[in-house]
Simulated scan of single mutants.
Amino acid sequence: MEPVRRIVGGRRADTVQRLLDAALEEIRAVEYGELSVRSVARRADVSPATAYTYFSSKDHLISSVVWRKIQETTSAFDDDTDLHQMVRRITNVFADEPELSRACTSALLGDDPEVKRLRDEIGTELARSLTRGLGSLPPTAVNSVTMALVGGLVLSGMGYIPFDDVADRLVDLVNQLQQASGRRGRKR
């Protein structure tokens, strides 16, 4: 799934990648409120019109950076990657880029249709990855764990809990769900 409004290839794909790279650099350099598609375009050495061809808003641009980071991270998971490793790698995306964490907390809440599309893609990808790491838990438990992960990321992005704590807390939650699921299963 491409983060941009239309599928691109060749030189256009290079332009999109330059814009995404420039957006990450811009996030590191300025506060989110000061960031704009124009400032990112300037940093990427493309015209604002070109940037707006691919990204409808700064929220869309930042959401696209997050989507790419999530895709890169989850594509590295294999059958031997356990839940704790998965969550740790996902949280490291944001722990390693605190400016991105703060920016995406705002960007992903935007009402831009392109942001909504990416927000749905990110949620689906996180749920898919977690499902692999959770094994035999029922779908309702997987949904709860996904919600807990997203909530943990938001709380960490806001500075309430360290990113390093999210993986440990999520594994504790899964252990509790597995114990509860096992108890219910034995009672029936």
Score class of each variant (00 low, 15 high):
26 E>A: 04
26 E>G: 01
26 E>Q: 11
28 R>W: 10
28 R>C: 04
32 Y>F: 15
32 Y>V: 04
32 Y>P: 00
33 G>Y: 08
34 E>Q: 14
34 E>C: 01
36 S>C: 00
37 V>M: 02
38 R>W: 10
41 A>D: 00
41 A>K: 01
42 R>Y: 12
42 R>G: 00
43 R>A: 03
44 A>M: 06
46 V>M: 06
48 P>D: 09
48 P>W: 08
50 T>A: 06
51 A>S: 00
52 Y>M: 07
52 Y>V: 07
56 S>I: 11
58 K>L: 09
58 K>E: 09
61 L>V: 11
63 S>M: 01
64 S>D: 10
65 V>T: 00
67 W>V: 00
68 R>L: 10
68 R>M: 11
69 K>Y: 07
70 I>D: 03
70 I>S: 02
70 I>K: 03
71 Q>V: 15
71 Q>E: 15
72 E>H: 08
72 E>R: 10
73 T>F: 00
73 T>W: 10
76 A>P: 06
80 D>C: 03
80 D>G: 06
81 T>A: 04
82 D>S: 00
82 D>C: 02
83 L>V: 12
83 L>T: 09
83 L>D: 11
85 Q>C: 07
86 M>V: 02
87 V>E: 00
88 R>I: 03
89 R>P: 05
90 I>P: 04
90 I>T: 01
91 T>E: 06
92 N>G: 08
92 N>S: 14
93 V>M: 02
93 V>P: 04
94 F>N: 04
94 F>W: 01
94 F>A: 00
95 A>E: 15
96 D>N: 07
96 D>W: 04
96 D>S: 05
97 E>T: 11
98 P>T: 05
98 P>G: 02
99 E>L: 13
99 E>C: 01
100 L>T: 03
100 L>F: 08
101 S>K: 04
105 T>K: 11
106 S>I: 13
107 A>K: 02
107 A>W: 08
107 A>F: 10
109 L>G: 14
111 D>L: 08
111 D>H: 08
113 P>K: 01
113 P>Q: 03
116 K>E: 14
117 R>F: 08
117 R>G: 05
120 D>Y: 12
120 D>Q: 13
123 G>D: 08
123 G>Q: 04
124 T>G: 14
124 T>P: 09
126 L>D: 06
126 L>H: 07
127 A>Q: 15
127 A>S: 14
127 A>E: 14
127 A>N: 14
127 A>G: 11
128 R>D: 13
129 S>Y: 07
130 L>P: 03
131 T>R: 15
131 T>A: 12
132 R>H: 13
132 R>P: 05
133 G>I: 04
134 L>E: 11
135 G>W: 10
135 G>M: 09
135 G>H: 09
135 G>L: 09
136 S>E: 14
136 S>N: 15
136 S>I: 10
137 L>V: 15
137 L>H: 02
138 P>R: 06
138 P>C: 06
139 P>R: 09
140 T>M: 06
140 T>W: 11
141 A>N: 02
142 V>K: 05
144 S>F: 12
144 S>G: 14
145 V>T: 06
146 T>I: 02
147 M>L: 15
148 A>E: 13
148 A>R: 12
149 L>P: 05
